[in-house]
């Protein structure tokens, strides 16, 4: 099946878990955060979470950065659909405003 990881399309076997993806990519799992379809996945859930066709995965970590902003949209994958939700955990949800996407389209 096809999934999108950090904006790039990738092929992975059906039913693969998030943990499987991390090990296929040969990443150090203790220094990552992962979003699946714009919801943060706790590390404890990587083993039990199966990926599905067209899932969008963001894998992030820390890089050098300072007292500085950077280019607009540089933060990381911002291919969000207008109605998608930016999720925290449990009961906290933040609706991503439509203008985020509109602004990114313009730049």
């Amino acid at each position: 099946m096809k999934i999108v990881v950090n904006g790039e399309e990738r092929e992975i076997e059906d039913g693969a878990t998030v943990s499987r993806l991390v090990s296929l990519l040969d990443l150090k799992s203790d220094r990552l955060a992962i979003e699946l379809n714009v919801r943060i996945l706790r590390k404890g859930d990587w083993d039990s979470t199966e990926l599905a066709e067209a899932d969008r995965v963001e894998i992030v970590s820390f890089v050098g950065g300072g007292a500085a902003g950077s280019q607009r949209g540089a933060a990381f994958g911002l291919e969000l659909e207008p109605e998608e939700r930016c999720a925290g955990f449990a009961d906290t949800f933040y609706l991503l405003r439509k203008d985020v996407q509109l602004r990114i389209d313009r730049t």
Binding site: R31, L32, A33, I34, E35, V38, I40, R42, K43, E58, V60, S61, F62, G65, G66, A68, G69, S70, Q71, R72, G73, A74, A75, F76, L78, C86, G88, F89, Y94, L95, L96, R97, D99, V100, R103
Partner: peptide, 24 residues
Amino acid sequence: LPNTAGCYSADEAIRTAMLAREVL
């Protein structure tokens, strides 16, 4: 001290902060 550099809205900043919390 993770930052939310490059974020141009409250939502982006919140999302980034939550990811940072998850990294370490």
